[in-house]
Amino acid sequence: MLTIILRAIIVYFIVLMVFRLMGKRQIGQMQPFELVLTLIIADLATIPMAEMSVPLLHGIVPLFTLVIAHYAITIISKKSIKFNRLISGKPIIVINPNGVDYEALRELNVSIDDIFGSIRTQGYFKLEQIQYAIMETNGTMTVMPKADYSPVTNANLKLKVDDESIPITLVSEGSLMKENLSLAKVDKNFIQSVLKKAKISSLKNCVVLTIDSNNMIYVQEKGKKFQTFEAEKC
């Protein structure tokens, strides 16, 4: 039994490494060849894990071979559009200004109900709201609404708004994010002063502390409501 435990740990780390090498795409974002690869990897990994008569190498070698095949396909796909179309297909317009393209639906083997489901996830409930809907190669639907139904933006209203940056996390679950201190151009003394201002006794009690480009602090103590205030940098 100990052997099975050790084998499971080894296979787990190898599969983890394989997925890290493959990239960080989610299942819904995968190209067909990536999905196939994921399914095969899952199956391959379980064989040497539980089957004692199968050497571990019989699981590792195909796993690594698939990584190489995956990279070969990715590299060739980047170089050749034709190969990319062959492997991943091409985006297909399923709704155009004339309405639903039934031939495209038949080609994709999707139903009108699937189209309704996809446009609903994008926040549209009527087909007449859609100018174009495109079925992407990874199976997701991209929707472009008609001008009357598209959300109003600051640009439409000719409003001048400053760009905002992403808030930087300085404390996460009681741990100081040291690498983010230099990004935010602050130091440990700044963190202490913010905690003092927020009346948080110690770093360990801080759930989260972030700072944005306007020096706005978002801080929350364990079991308490969050606070926001403008910080003064030294």
């Binding site: 090498l21 190498l57 070698v61 690594f64 071979t65 990584v67 190489i68 990279y71």
Partner: peptide, 17 residues
């Protein structure tokens, strides 16, 4: 770094064969 890992994997596969 990724290409180095891939090279290591290729060498490993060739070695095992």
């Amino acid at each position: 770094k990724k290409y180095i890992y891939l090279l290591i994997i290729i060498l490993f596969l060739v070695g095992v064969c």
